[in-house]
Nucleic acid binder design. Structure first.
Lengths: 328, 328
DNA sequence: CTTGCATATGACAACGTTGTCCAGGCCCTA
DNA sequence: TAGGGCCTGGACAACGTTGTCATATGCAAG
């Protein structure tokens, strides 16, 4: 910028004015400055700007895995909102590791992002307290924050799972399996709770062999599914706790002789084209991201009052697999 | 930092030394400083650091759409490499709009990212020349750069498409349709070229009614597919130019009476569970991202010589749909 | 006891930008 | 013509950090 000023034969501040479109510059002067800028290929250094102004016009997103089809649309939605506010998005994957989540979140704070959208991996977020006090807007998505009071946007995991399982029960099933992630993950715990609630409502006593918690990699999901399908009281239906589980279970069921009903949490692509179509409890990932980002920027505007918990509804989509009658 | 220094009763530089783990500080002093840091919840301001040092330890990724299942893994792979080098990833979606791509790329440069990974939407990247000259490492992925000489990592789109179409021909098809994106997009053009090459190699004259270029939204893809299946010389097989097209075509074919063969470019989830399984020409999105990011950091290390064009092979995965014989 | 060296610490400038404040020139009016 | 207000432009400090260099302290050798 110094160079530009020198070349245009004006003061530093005048260049700054031109670059930022501030008033108080003669068209003639502006032309000269613009010329110098073009000639030198000058581009404002945002680091210095940030240092001076305090706002970075960027927000951070910490999620579990960008490659997961559930988080892609969520991330994109956050990005769109950020863009509408002239902000850039920095994102990082925690890989479901609390330490890595913390490392990422703090690294983002060190870069002075204006706000953070976090899909928590851990369950203790007190490490963010100084940052929040220092003015970093924070919204948690998909799972609530641990040990601190903050905005949270999540799906109705409990209600969704209960509806899904109730749907299976309505179609005559009583021996219903549940395969889900580790209960230390809030969504997994809530969905399990929904499963239990639906079963209890129908006066069904859940046998422990029907439940598989904490499995997530395809091999172990497969084994878990096969076991609950072959035990002494085999299940006639399975409720899959998330998209990855659903995919694996679909594979396993395709190999079974007798039809087994299935309802999965999270929608999956092409679910309608399988035979039978896969019935799912769908959540709207984009809406989650959009809502969270909206709230984040309202925090930054100062138009937001106190932390709130927003729960978005889920939707049961019937495609066939959830409507199969009990067999075997 | 000033506050920390005051509280610990030491100089600014000493705090800096402690924060950065530089040698030359008495354990006793270090303890006092550390204590002050904890008490004040101090975190280094990376903006100032960047301003001073010139390196931001962050790289930018400009892609088409984070929500696209093809770009998720790619983005994640770039992130992993960045993480290994202690860098953060800032990404933005261009939505296939050249202006937006440029806006994003320049915004990232203004933030002084150390490097850029770009999946180009436009075909003229001369706007990046000043930045590259200024030291911003740049690698293009999936499609080559326009009008400038830069590192490029892409899949063998031509060879992949040719193999896929040849595969259909080998199974007896001659009237083969092609549905792809706008030929101004490099990948689309290359795949079209592969289609034409395969047809020519088999001495088949392509009728214009067999080709649909530039359609990408589900409705128009559907219409295009239906038209080429119903004309005066209906096709017996379709080559789908990308994952989104494939998904829609699968839907259309499911409604058809007679079996129609299909090979798609890009793998899609659950493709193996459909009936018939969808044969595809798969490219390795993660490998693309990893390779590109590796090259980026090698540019930054200074261990890289001149721009290069790296082409990764594709893989034909047969699952049934591509092996159907001609019918009708 | 002096000299010299190593080690610990701090003062200061600089990175590039922007907010504040002031100076100078111009035009208008009385 | 003098006085006042407006407009344009620039000097300067500050943002928070780090590299450079100087100083102070301690200790060993002469």
């Amino acid at each position: 910028m110094k160079d530009v000023a020198a070349r245009a034969g004006v003061g530093l501040k005048t260049v700054s004015r031109v670059v930022n479109g501030e008033p108080g510059v003669t068209p003639e002067t502006e032309r000269r400055v613009q010329e110098a800028i073009d000639a030198l290929g000058f581009r404002r250094n945002d680091s210095a700007r940030v240092l001076r102004k305090g706002r970075t016009a960027s927000i951070g997103l910490v999620l579990e895995d960008l490659a997961d089809p559930f988080y892609g649309p969520l991330s994109r939605a956050v990005e769109e909102v950020a863009r509408a506010h002239g902000a850039l998005l920095i994102n990082g994957s925690s890989a479901e590791d609390p330490d890595r989540e913390q490392e990422l979140a703090l690294a983002l704070c060190a870069r002075r992002v204006d706000g953070l959208v976090i899909i928590p991996a851990g369950d203790d977020h007190r490490y963010l307290e100084p940052e929040i006090r220092a003015g970093v807007a924070t919204v948690f998505v998909d799972r609530p924050a641990g040990q601190i009071d903050a905005d949270v946007v999540l799906s109705d995991n409990f209600g969704g799972a209960r509806d899904g399982v109730t749907h299976l029960i309505a179609h005559g099933h009583r021996r219903i399996g549940f395969i889900g992630d580790m209960p230390r993950i809030h969504t997994a715990a809530e969905r399990l709770r929904g499963y239990r609630a639906a079963m209890e409502d129908a006066d069904i006593t859940v046998e422990s062999a029907w439940m598989s918690l904490g499995v997530t990699d395809p091999l172990r999901v497969r084994r878990a599914a096969e076991e609950m399908l072959s035990g002494s009281s085999p299940v006639t239906a399975i409720f899959a706790g998330n998209n990855r589980v659903t995919v694996t279970v679909v594979r396993v069921l395709a190999e079974q002789q007798r039809p087994v009903a299935l309802v999965g949490f999270d929608d999956i692509e092409l679910a309608d084209l399988l035979d039978p179509g896969v019935s799912v409890v769908a959540q709207d990932a984009a809406a989650l991201g959009r809502t969270a980002a909206d709230r984040l920027f309202r925090q930054l505007d100062g138009t937001l009052l106190s932390p709130e918990r927003i729960e978005l509804p889920t939707r049961l989509i019937t495609r066939g697999s959830g409507e199969l009658p009990p067999a075997g």
